[in-house]
Design a protein around this nucleic acid. Structure first.
Lengths: 208, 208, 208, 208
DNA sequence: TATGAATGAGTGTTCATTCAT
DNA sequence: AATGAATGAACACTCATTCAT
């Protein structure tokens, strides 16, 4: 994560990885077939880690809209709290919510529930996903380039809820909730790597 | 465009470019400093081309919401009509609406107008842009991976308008309009390159 | 001369030359077959120019030792007065007194005269030339890297005369003479190019 | 050394080096940053090797003039005995006694001793070095272009001693000594590379 | 006679991958 | 299981040279 976040996914080379990880070339190849292989693995591990925590927090809620609101908020707040996550996400670009993303295992269900319970309009599944993924990704990516107003996370959530069909009042009711920060387990990938992360000056150029 | 669309922005190689363009290595370097330089230039030229046309169509309209709706629809419909555009956009990823994008020269103005005229809620400029850019980019990118329902473009527009503050009815009124396809000038970059474009089988794997 | 002096003989490329000279590529090839061709021509022209002037000053003197002393002094003083000459000479390295040098047309004669008149020991022609060429070249080259004490030129002359057979007293008598600076014709290559010469910071690295 | 000697320092190309050395391109870059880097390294290693041997032979002598005479003779005789050394030196040109040369670590001391003991005139340090370096380099370089009279090495030494202040008789007394050839260690760089060296026809043109 | 766009062979450099230790 | 030296294909970039205008 440290290397991909810093140099960009496509600019990173195995030499960077092994010197950062402190292992030998041979060891790298014992565990990964290629550099992209590693990147996919890191992205999956990170996704699994976060998704598990989010699901824990969200699964008790009855209202699909509330589940969605809280889930998105949690992702966004975690990105702000862990700049490494934001930076890595920006580097991974659209691949971070690509077709193999675990997000796709759960999000559609919540949306479907929302439609069935009449909270959301009946807009096509994929369109909802485009809007949510796109909006959140852009907001998180932007947060790693320049500093963003941390309050704006609520606006993102509210806007997404409105686009799904909630009234403005209802959208804000859910978006405005206070959320406790995510509690990453001691040995979580994100927590451990964040310890070593020192954000670098960013040209903003080679994003992607 | 042909090369970047086909192989991805970061995997493309000068050899591909020059053999596709039918020029020599030396000629390439006479005009561009690097491969990325070319990609940026192509993206800018394409952006300028489309934006000019969109502005022509849109500038006569009084209602900012209508301008926005029509503009977004035009982009989306053009992407569907010219798969090369969609594919190139997907390859460029977030860079296609990066910080130097011309879109940023005009979109904020429309949104601001909308806010001042009371058609849009007063949500932060950057958040609106994240939602619009993200949603549209994801939809277009998806259209180049698998086939999408061409009707869904209207859903994207309607959802974006709702997120900005329009009622569902009003949003659909604008989203549902028939739009005449864009008329690209004979010598337009997109038209000329599309003539040579034969979409390839897509692994869907190394997108980005 | 400007280009060769600045970038070194082997690092200079035709692009540098034509942009400095303000002519086109085609024009260059009308007059010179290659870059080295130009360098040889410049070196010869410069050599011819200086040698003519030196011979004028020297030809009236009866004593071969005096001729030699004055000639060497003139070269050295010109190098100090025209840093471009020193720098060019350093860049050309040993090639500047290479086998085709005009110096070899006259110097042997003076030395031979000196031997026949009993002023010089009978040491082998080539050895005398090695010492004179080598000593003078190194002194001039050094003057273009760091600043040298301008008085040391006399030491070089005196030492060379001693090595050829003069007593220390006699050597110094000749080396100590005041010499009027060389009067370059208005349109001389060296004068004209020196007008445009602005000495650059010198890494001292790629000195030949 | 083989490659630099044959093709000249600036004309040599990494391909020549690796094919001559029988290693791969990657291996080259593991050890050297550039071609010039290798050349500098070779020159330093060669200098270190020879200087060590010379110092061994010379350090027992009390008379600085004798030390100098023997030292210079040894260099010259080694150049004649190992044409690869002469050729390499000619190719390296003035860089072979450039500012980083080890010679500069020892020679000044001997000269200073000579001055203090009244054997040498008090001429400026740098001027002595110019004469010695220049004279010896030119002689060695010439030996690699055309065949030189091996006796002339003595003349070079005698002339240099005279220039430093010795009488002709004294100079010859030291220059005329028989010197045993240098004994290079079995694994010395120069010995090993000389085994593979077959002098080539020399155009004498693009020296340097 | 002068121009400068175009060419492509030549060269430097990187980096994924292998494999003996 | 881990290492890291060695490999060489792939790629970026330069620059001498040509030639139609």
């Amino acid at each position: 994560m440290l290397v991909f976040a810093e140099k960009g996914v496509d600019a990173s080379v195995i030499d960077d990885v092994i010197s950062t990880a402190g292992v030998s070339r041979g060891t790298f190849y014992k565990y990964f077939k290629s550099n992209r292989d590693l990147m996919v693995a890191a992205n999956e591990e990170l996704g699994r880690e976060l998704l598990t925590l989010v699901l824990n927090r969200v699964s008790g809620l009855d209202d699909p809209a509330e589940r969605l609101a809280l889930g998105v908020r949690l992702f966004i707040e975690t990105a702000l709290a862990f700049p490494l996550f934001a930076r890595f996400t920006r580097s991974a670009g659209m691949a971070s919510v690509g077709p193999r993303s675990l997000l796709l295992d759960y999000l559609p269900g919540h949306i479907q529930d929302g439609i069935e319970q009449g909270r959301f309009f009946d807009l096509p599944q994929e369109v909802s996903l485009d809007l949510i993924s796109g909006g959140v990704l852009f907001y998180i990516a932007r947060s790693s380039e320049s500093s963003v107003d941390p309050e704006h996370g609520r606006h993102v959530v509210a806007a997404l809820l409105r686009s799904l069909g909630l009234s403005d009042a209802e959208a804000w009711r859910l978006a405005d909730r206070e959320v406790a920060p995510m509690e990453l387990p001691e040995n979580s990938l994100l927590r451990r790597s964040s310890l070593r992360y020192r954000p670098q000056g960013d040209s903003g150029e080679d994003a992607q």
